[in-house]
Every structure is written in structure tokens, then in C-alpha cells.
Design a protein around this nucleic acid. Sequence first.
RNA 1: GGGCGAUUGGCUCAGCGGUAGAGCGCUGCCUUCACACGGCAGAGGUCACUGGUUCGAUCCCAGUAUCGCCCACCA
Length: 904
Amino acid sequence: MTTREPDGLPSQYAPAEVETRRYEQWEKAGYFQPEAQGHSQSEAQQGAAAPAFTIVLPPPNVTGSLHVGHALDHTLMDALARWHRMRGFRTLWLPGMDHAGIATQNVVERELAKEGLSRHDLGREAFVERVWRWKAEYGGKILGQMRRLGDSVDWTRERFTMDEGLSRAVQTMFKRLYDDGLIYRDNRIINWCPRCLTALSDIEVNHEDDEGELVYIRYGDNSKTGDGAGDRTGDGTGTAAGAGGGIVVATTRAETMLGDTAVAVHPDDERYAHLVGKTVELPLTGRRIPIVADAHVDPEFGTGAVKVTPAHDPNDFEIGRRHDLPTLTIMDEHGVITAPGPFEGLDRFEARPAIVAALREDGRIVKEVRPYVHAVGHCDRCGTVVEPRLSLQWFVRVATLAKAAGDAVRDGRTVLYPSEMNARFFGWVDDMHDWCISRQLWWGHRIPVWYGPDGPDGQPQVRCVGPDEEAPAGWTQDADVLDTWFSSGLWPFSTLGWPEPTADLREFYPTSVLVTGYDILFFWVARMMMFGTYAMKDRAPQEAVPFRKVLLHGLIRDQFGKKMSKSKGNTVDPLELIDRFGADAVRFTLARGANLGGDMSLAEDWVAGSRNFCNKLWNATRFALMNGATSVRSGELTELTAADRWILSRLSAVTGDVTRWLDEFEFGKACDALYHFAWDEFCDWYLELAKVPLASGDEAAAASTRRVLGFVLDQMLKLLHPVMPFVTDELWCALTGEDSVMLAPWPEFALPDPAAEAELASLMRLVTEVRRFRSDQGLRPGQRVPARLAGIEGTPLAPHEESIRSLLRLTAPEDGFAVSASLAAEEVMVEIDLAGTVDVEAERKRLEKDLAAARKEAAQTSGKLGNESFMAKAPADVIAKTRQRLADAEADTVRLESRLATLG
RNA sequence: GGGCGAUUGGCUCAGCGGUAGAGCGCUGCCUUCACACGGCAGAGGUCACUGGUUCGAUCCCAGUAUCGCCCACCA
């Protein structure tokens, strides 16, 4: 039940209204823009320009909506941005979106299909126009969702990979690479998606284990004697080339045999040495093809003989080049057989069994068919099995670019977190294939190359056209567009105005940190580093890299540790969680689970737990306000009690810890530290202790406590703000009367007090001990019990007698007080009058259990101290600690024995 | 096929060469005047297995098992 209290704050935090109002206020005030952040509050930085802190948002697909992976990504980025803003950095978090070539085109094509149209019915220009219309209407849903999360991005600098400035950047980059000979066009085997009808780069292909068949086929015919291989075989050279003659090859893609133009064996393979240079007959076709020797062949695999299909397999293509074999294309772009004959017009997956069946008509040809599980490439976008296809495409020559990217990490100009990712990164950049960048799509950046009339060499003239150049009249532009990742690779600098020498580029590049899941380290990070170091090569090397740090966080799994996927139905919608628990709760849960390098699981229960934490903060602040707390500066903290000095000492520790953890991207540890400080130390102990002076009637003591309450709360809310922006802003403003905590200076408070910590630790041990007794005795928590704290005078706990009595609900001894139980704790004998109702058996059981534990501990530690090897080799501090443990255990033993004795 | 990581209470995870931690869940008591989205107390683990190094191993090393991820042009 929510009741409205006199202080104006209801007893439960209601996130929805606060979130909407606060976000609007922040945006309106311009806090997200570095220009409006007013960097004058930090004395340390006066006179000097505030340092810049930059994050570019990994641009989500224009087709996308916010999933829980984004929510984690964004929470970490926003926490970093907010933290740096509070520390006085000119902070820019730049948002934007990716045009997502294939994904977007597919979406719009599906929409067209509902109208019975294909993109070809519209034509290129109208189709692209239609995609833009789709974008205007439905695209970018994710941007609105980011506001719900509280993302403090600078909306005035939002960019899109297809907007005019970025398109110029793309064209400029292409032209520079082209002029430097780093872009070329070639006829090569590329990954082809027969459904999307476009080339794909290696990273757009996912390898999955599929069940297939390995078919052993005998090439060459020994039913007739005569030329070729047949007449020399059958001489016991093994099963491969054995009885029956010819040569047996193994294949998983039987249909490609129609395009075979050779059989290859290893040059050192003695089984086949006599066949090299001969020809065999290719079944079903009547063609004779040569047997060649090539070192690529693995003699151990299959029969050691490989069919060679240069037009349909990348390895075979290379073999074909080395041996000058013809390329025979037998399939069209849809994966339909085009080779004349009975299989023409069949889809590749229909042709495969059909061809095996046809081969089987002659019982001697198919030697064996065995089930075979092997990795097959699938289109990243639609899942269709990728077909290697020979075609004319554009490529980036990556060797030098990739090396530069690798060097940036090797030199420490860019640091990966966690560093375990270095090995993966190097493995990738050091062995990268040339990047196929042309796509047979309509949605994307058109390749800026134009073709004219034939030149002197009989080939059409080619010209790469820069952004400020005109193509010669009458020439035609290349029909293809660029891979989406080409433009995203420019993101850290194209968004800041490159290639123009803008002020933003000067100030905010290199960006400070890139935050992303480790799954796209290679997709995207490596490319940005290749392009960034190249585009900025006129800068000093350490200023050329696109980011100084890369934070790679784990993936989010469900509560059972399983990867989330739509097909499993175990996805979590972050917006629904925000609706139910509030954005701060979702953010805190994600940040708390974010351990460097580790994946995290997400369950609703934890979000509920974080929601409870928000509410705890809410009520702690409400309590403080109801008691007249206001924020003060640390200089106003005077007349401090031990409890005050204790909480201030703990605040000092958590301030240092949180700052350090954030600096190391250890969000989980920072959140844990704050959670325990706020809940266990501040709420459960300090607020309870504070009730004594607040209610004491001693106005000086109450005023001092109000100041400490206000100060600690003020600092604590600031420390929490990067991760929980909404609730902290609302509460901090209620406490201080300021407009927003967003630009409040980050706490640097340090007032450690070991003596106070020791004193309060002693108090807590005593209180806990007596509470346990009370619980064991079945006393209701609220029940007042007469008690005497015998012997407290002169101990460090003496000043706390009133607090102890308050925490334990102990009343002063009155007439007729009779000790029915006494517990020795912390040098104090707590004598309690239970009016004779003490449960002796329960107490005896408890004491005997504790006594057994204490004796065991004493025996163990004493044994250790009697061990010569231990005493000789263990370090002094360990021995000292062990001695202390023994002393404690012995003291406990004595104490417990005496308590047992008093039970009678 | 290659590389990397994981294996700790019911669940999800921290931790770390020297007395096992958290959150949630669980048990008992309690509407004590900030909060039942709460308070207090409590139960629960031979830190995957087998060896090794060490005075001492959950932690270091080797091997085994299981799981996960990334990379991959052996047909």
C-alpha cells in the first residue's frame, strides 16, 4: 500500500512518472551536449580546457528494436558517460543508426511481396525511394526506446550511415583506398546467398554442423579397355584406385560433378603417381578430365583424390588457377542447375540426390555413401545454405590495413578489456582474407566507379569518382552497393565530420572507449581499426586509432545460462521489464551482472531485487528528509559521534572502491560495493543508530546527525547516479533543492577512521549476539526486556549504551529485576530479566554447538602453531593471524563455558 | 579440425596459496513510528574428478570428464 506522507514523498518509488519527467528535463537543459555541460565546477581543472570523453554508440540497425543485449551495452555506456560528466569531462555520447543493407532490403521486399510485387517491379530508383519511406515511417524505433533506458546521448549529433555527410565519407574512403591500390575488382569465388541474390563476406557466413552424405564416386570407366587411367589400375594399389579401375573421389556436393574439370591427387601420393597426367571419364557427361597433382590435397582424407570444380569451390578454383583448368559454371544465381542435360532446371538440393541416383544406375560407379556431419556455411541474414560462386566482385586488400590494426593493439595504443581478447584479435587480423565489399543489392552506398567506352586495350575504361567529381557524360555507374560494414567501419570518425577537418573531429577523436559485446569484436571493431588508422594516418600514431580502449562485455543468457534466442522463446524484452520494474532496476541488474569477459544470466527475480533496492534508497531518503536532513559540505561535519565517524569512514572506502572499479570497467564490483554500503551499512545500521540522537531531545546531537545523514546520502546518491540515473536524480534534488545531480561533482571524500570502525564492529558483534539470544528464546522483536549491561563502564562501548539498548529493545532494570539469563559479549555481561521464562534447553543447545565450534577452531589453530614446518616457512603475518585466531577461539571457549555454567 | 573459457551452497555467479562469499530461493519470528519492494535470526557447500608442487591448494601445474564460445576453404 502506498501512503502519502507529510514530506511529500509516497512510501513507494513509482518510476514511470519520474523517468519521463527527468529525461525531458535533462534533454531540455542540454546536459547531453558537451557545449552545455558548464565545465567550471572542478577547481583542479580551472584554467585548463576540460578533457574530452567520447563514446560513439555502436549504431543499431535501422530495422532493429531494443533487445536485452542493447540494454546492457547502453547501460554501461551511459554509466561511463554520466560518470565522466560528473568528473568534469566534456562528454559526448554520439548516437545513430546503421542502414543495414541486406536486413533492411529484406524487410521492405517482404512488405512488397504482400502486395504481390518484387523490387524489380518497382525498379531501382523507386525501390530505394520506398526504403527511405519505410525508414521514415517505421525505422529507428530503437531511438525512442533508448530514451526509456535513460541514455544520455547527444541527440543533436545523431547520424545515419546513409545520410549525406556519411555518404561523402564513404565515397572519400573508397576513392582513397582505390587510388592507393587497396581496392580491386576480380573474378573470384565468393560466398553467394541464392535467396538474397548477393555476395556475402566471410563474416556474414555462419558455419553450422549439418548432416550430409559423403558420396564415393568412381571416375573413369573400366568397362571398356582403352586409353586413360583405366588400363593401368586394378593392380592392388588400394581400394581407392583399386579393383574396377578409374579413380574414386569423395564429395558432399555430388551435383557439382557436372562442373568438374579435373581430379587432383597429392604429388607425393604413390597410390596415384602413375595416374597423374592421364585422363579419366567423368560419369554422366562423357567428358574426359585430367588427373593433376596438387599439394593442397590431403592424402589422408577420403580416398586422397579430389574432384576439382573450379567454378563452384574456392579451393578448386585455386587448384584450377595453378593448373590452368577451365572453369565450368553449372549453376545460376538461384542455385539452379544450368548444365544442359537431364538435370537442367533442378534446384541444387534436388539435383544432388537425382545425380546420385543416376550414377547408381551403373552399379560400379557409386562405391559408397556414408552419413557425414560437416560444417556448412549459412547466410547470416536468412539462413540459406551459402553457395560458393564464381563472380566479378570488388575487394579490399586487407593485409597492410589489418596489420596496422593489429599493431595498434600490440603497441598499446588501443587496449582491449579484458586482455584475454588480444589473442583472438590477433588471430583474426593476422590471417584475414581479402574482404569482398560489393553487394548485389539496391539499398546501400553505390560503388563510386563508372565505366566508359572501351579503351585502347579493348576493355571498358574505368574511373573511380570522388565526392566532388563528376562522372564523364555517358558513362555508367557500377550497379552494386557496398557492404554495410564498409560504412560502419568509418563510424568513429565519419560521425564527427570526416573527411572535413571539423572541430568535433579535432576534439572528440580518438574516441575514449568503445563498448560492445565480444561477439562482434571481429565483425566491426577490427574494421574500424583498419579504417581509422588508415584514414587518420596523417596524425601521430597514438592519435590515429579510433578508440583508446575497447570494452568487450559478455552475452546475456536466460536464468538457466542458455543463450537467448527467439526460437527458444527465452528472450527477455527490456522494455517490458522497464514498464514493470523501472529503468533504474533494469540498469542496476545489468550493470551488477557485468563482469569483465563473463557472460551473465538474467532472471526477472533479480530485476525485482533491484527494484527493491531503488525503493530502499527511496525510503532511506524519505526517512532522512522526514527528520530534517539537508545536504551539507564536508567542512560542516563537526561534533561527530563514533557512529558518525564510522559511516563516514565506510563512505570513504566505498567512494574509493567505486571509483577504482569503474576505472577498470568492473561494473559488477562497483554495484556490489554500493549495494552493500547503502543497504547493509547505511540503512540497516546507521539509520537505526541515528534514531537515538534524533529522538533524544538533545538538539545539538540531532542537528549533527541530520548533517551526517544529509552528507552521506548526498554522496551516496552521486555514486549511484551513473548506474541508476532516475531515482538518484529525483532523490538528490529533493535533498538538495538543486535542478539535477547530472553535473554534480563526483565524490572524492576520504575520512578513514580505523578506530571508529573497530568500535562499531564491536558494537555490532554484541548486538548480533544478543539478538540471536532473543531469537532463540522466542522473544518478539518488539518486546521490551529489562536488562543490565554489567561492566560496560570503562569499555569502548560505554558511550553506546543507549544505542545498544535501543537496537536491542532493552529497558532499564526496575524494582524486582532478577537476572534470568546473562551473556558475556565483548567484555560486557548482558544480564536479562525474562521473568523466569528463559528456555534453558534451547540456550544450552545453542551454547553447546557454539562451544564445540570454538573448541574445534582452537584445536585446529593450535595444531597449526605446533607444526614446525609451518612455523618455519609460513610468513610472519600468517602466523600472527593464526595466533590471534587461537586466542579468540580460546576466549570464546572460556566465555561459552561460563555461560553454560550459569545455566545451571 | 584449431583456439579460448568454464565447472564453488537449490538457482545464477563473485572470490582466492593460509578460517568458503553475494543475490535470489529456503526455514523461524515480527505489521518495532523510512521501507512487508521491509526487519531480525537461521539452515545450506568434501569449491567436477585424478595425480603433482607446497608447511598448507577451491586457488598453481598435468591429465580426465562435462559444458560453452570463437575461429575454420579437408572435398
